[in-house]
């Protein structure tokens, strides 16, 4: 991990409110694992003061320029504009200076080759699942169950398909794929592939529902959590979640940034996971 003082290579809106940003990051691929994240410094001046955490969508190389220089290695983020920081990010252009601290945290355990894998993504939660799919599809059959509010929240499905991932889409309003919850699809898939390992990232209620399906079946489940973060490196203790067996006398608090963001379901105290309240946009400075 290091602090890359680098620049934006490209930044595009791909669906209303969703953007993809490529950042120059030499050597990043070598050291990062699927499920890790970065702390992104939106701009060198204030505000916002603190960095913002983002998952790693993918790493790659730009096609070589005709300048004869080696191809540029990039890190790609996919983000949703929800407030001030992401708003400023969406206005960044090629060549703008940014800082990226990472890769941070623990990523996914990619499990056994050949094992069936089911990825469950809710909205922006697909981000770490894409870098995971890049890895898993090398050795396993991978299925993606993708949920969102409307069709605008369903992203990058064709890219998953290009990797050979079988995808199933559901939306709350039925504007794309099946109408309803992604968890209904998960029930059916687990009935059919009872030995599959499940990987999930999305809003906490979705993760809880996925856990409630997997736990009684004894299905292996890894989840990627979000938390408000100040440091991203385990120093501020702002991002803790309760681990299994937590009590006041014997605190079992896990830093989402350092011991996560990916956790095995059995590490967490599911009955006491606190949902971060949804602040209204613009309330956060």
């Amino acid at each position: 991990m290091k602090n890359y003082k680098t620049m934006v290579l490209s930044n595009q809106e791909i669906s209303p409110g969703y953007h993809r940003m490529r950042i120059l990051a030499p050597g990043f691929d070598e050291i990062s694992r699927p499920g890790q994240f970065v702390m992104f410094r939106v701009q060198m001046s204030l505000p916002p003061l603190l960095r913002r955490p983002f998952g790693i969508f993918r790493t790659g190389f730009l096609p070589p320029d005709c300048d004869g220089l080696p191809p540029k290695e990039y890190l790609e983020l996919l983000y949703k504009v929800v407030g001030r920081g992401t708003g400023i990010m969406s206005d960044l252009h090629e060549g703008d200076r940014v800082e990226v601290l990472g890769p941070l945290g623990k990523g996914f355990d990619t499990g056994n080759p050949g094992e069936e894998k089911i990825l469950v993504g809710g909205g922006i939660g697909l981000v770490p699942l894409f870098s995971l799919a890049l890895e898993l599809t090398k050795t396993s059959k991978v299925r993606l169950l993708m949920g969102g509010r409307t069709r605008d929240d369903i992203l990058a499905v064709t890219e998953f398909e290009r990797l050979g991932v079988e995808t199933y889409v559901s939306t709350d309003d039925g504007s794309l794929g099946e109408e309803g919850m992604v968890t209904q699809v998960l029930q059916r898939k687990l009935d059919k592939y009872p030995h599959a390992a499940v990987y999930a990232c999305g809003p906490l209620p979705m993760l809880r529902a996925v856990h409630d399906i997997c736990a009684p079946r004894g299905t292996s489940l890894q989840v990627s959590l979000e938390a408000l973060m100040a440091c991203g490196v385990g120093a501020c203790l702002g991002c803790v979640v309760k681990g299994r067996g937590h009590s006041e006398e014997n605190p079992q608090l896990l830093c989402t940034c350092k011991e996560g963001p990916v956790f095995r379901a059995e590490q967490l105290d599911w009955s006491n996971l606190e949902k971060e309240p949804d602040y209204c946009e613009g309330c956060a400075s």
């Binding site: 204030l46 505000p47 916002p48 003061l49 603190l50 938390a227 408000l228 973060m229 100040a230 501020c236 203790l237 702002g238 991002c239 803790v240 979640v241 937590h246 009590s247 006041e248 605190p251 608090l253 606190e274 971060e276 309240p277 956060a284 400075s285």
Partner: peptide, 13 residues
């Protein structure tokens, strides 16, 4: 154990 979350909030500067 400290306090419940959210434990941090950014404000102006």
């Amino acid at each position: 154990a400290g306090n419940p979350t959210p434990r941090i909030a950014e404000t102006i500067s």
